[in-house]
Structure formats: C-alpha cells, structure tokens
Nucleic acid binder design. Structure first.
Lengths: 146, 146
DNA sequence: GATTTAAATAAAAATGGTTTCTATTTACGA
DNA sequence: TCGTAAATAGAAACCATTTTTATTTAAATC
C-alpha cells in the first residue's frame, strides 16, 4: 500500500500535483466509495487549504482516465472508488455502508448465487442498463462521433 | 390504447385525480422516457394550471407503486417510463433519443449479441449494479427492516 | 539553478433539478 | 349532499455541482 501514482498520472497526461496525489491516497485508503465532499474532508486533513470545485474537477478527470470508478448512487450523488482490479468486472455495493466488492462473473443468476454464498448479504435490487445509440441515432450526423 | 388507469390507481390506494390520469396518459403515449418537466409540459396542454412539484410527487408515488419505471439517466436527472411489459426484464435505453426497448434475457453476453443483431445500435457502455445490504449491515438493528 | 508557460488552483457566485412549506381545493365514501 | 382526508398550486428554499476569474504552481527548457 501507499502506492505512488506519479506513473499513472503521467500516462494520463496529468501533472502530479499534491492535490491529485492526496485525492488518490484518500481513495486508495478507503474500502467504500466516497463523495466529493468526503474526499475533500480527507484531503483537508493534510494541507490547510480548501477548494471543493478542484476536487470535483480532479475526480472527473481521474474517472475519465479510468483511474477511478464513478458510481451514480440512488441518492443521485456521485461517488468515486479506486479499484485495484483492472480487468472488466462488476461491483456489489452496499447501499447502507457503501462498501464495494468485486463480482467475478457476468451472469445474473450466477451473480445472485455468488452474492448470497460469498457475501451473505441481502440483495434488494439490481440495475442493469445498456447504454448506446439506437439504429436511428447511429445515422444522425450531429451525434455520429460519440 | 387510451387505457383508463382508475383500476390500477385504486389498487395502489391512490385517488384517480385528473392530474394523475393526465400524467399516466402522457407517459402511455410516449415511447421514450420523460423528465418531470416534460410530463409537466404535456399535462399542461390539457388543463391550464401548473404545479410542477405535484408532478414530481405523483411520479414518485406511481413509481413506488410499480406503475412506472424510474430511470436515473447519466445526466443525473430522473426520468419515468410506463412499460407495458409487467414481467421482470431489462431495458435498452438510447442515450441520444431516450427510446426504451425491452431486453428479453438476462445474460450479459447474450444481451450484447442480441442488441447488435436486433437493434443494430451501438453499445457504448453498460452498467450493472447489485444493490442490497452486506453481511455486516444486515445485522445492524437500525437498518434491519429495509 | 533560474526562467518560462501552460496547467492547476482557490474562492465566490451562479446554476438548476428537486423538495419543502402552507393555504386552498378536490375526490369520494358515508 | 356533506364531511374529511387527500391532493393541489404557488412560492420559496435546498444543495450538489458548475462556472468564473484571478492567482499560484509544476516541470520543461534554457
């Protein structure tokens, strides 16, 4: 642990500023996903300065670069999580404590079984949504390049 | 079409007010999911009066009762959809035009294949999230009854 | 090590979807 | 028809997030 993220930031074309490193440290040390405000609180413990909008922008950049996962929680707030597992996978999230756990498979039935057996948690709901462009929109000029 | 929803409303223990019936009619006549404001616009065409907060409250009640599906769009706004298909199934949603199409299966690979073949659309991303309570939270008194 | 410059930042203010509040009106069982 | 709890309109508040602008900083170049 206490991994240095300078290399990853360089790959993304982002400068290794103290703020950015602090944000990544804060998320690396958390087993639950965090809101921008919670990251802000953790980062402030170190340096004395504020700057919540900077946190928002940085989290967005890091998520866009793939370094962070972004979670749109049912409370409609955005949360962020630094996942060690780099391959394609899905998450089990606890809506009470916001813990994130990796799910190793992609089949719904298997997932439900695995969750019951492995995490012994209670599955209240799941959402599965495929996003993209329907055939018609694929052919519209103004949105072709998404 | 032009189905009367009085019976369904009664089942939910909700009065069949003109406002509610208009909301359901508006959604029944739409093949895309609608924002509260869009429902509001459609409802206003009939009666002259306003009441956006009432729209929000009604949409929430109808979704809670299972009469409407609620979609948390990537733009972080809430949208609503009246789906004829009552069984458990998932949706393909176009992020450009917000069209909703039913997906008849639950396996990720099959879904991807079916979408490519059936809708001939472009899959840009998918989210799959299982929500519930982890083992620890299951045992906490204050959240046991969720 | 000093210089340079585009990138990153802090702080305040604005934004906008949603919710709350309160007084009034309405649907519908008795 | 009447009585009452439920539903509504309108205004105002809420609050996570974004925008704006002036300032500071990281790090490439000399």
């Amino acid at each position: 642990m206490n991994h240095d993220f300078r290399e990853e930031l360089k790959t993304l074309g982002l400068k290794a500023t103290p703020r950015r490193l602090a944000i990544l440290q804060a998320l690396a040390g958390s087993s639950i996903y965090l809101s921008a405000e919670e990251v802000w609180a953790k980062v402030k413990e170190g340096s004395r300065e504020a700057g919540l909008p900077t946190i928002y922008r940085n989290l967005e950049e890091l998520a866009a670069g793939g370094l962070l996962s972004k979670v749109l929680h049912p409370d409609r707030k955005l949360y962020y999580y630094l996942c060690q597992n780099k391959g394609h996978h899905h998450h089990f999230v606890c809506i009470a404590c916001r813990r994130v756990e990796d799910i190793g498979t992609c089949a719904l039935d298997a997932i439900s079984r695995e969750i019951r057996e492995t995490f012994r948690g209670k599955v209240l709901s799941h959402t599965f949504q495929v996003e993209g462009l329907c055939e018609d929109c694929c052919h519209k000029e103004e949105i072709k390049d998404r």
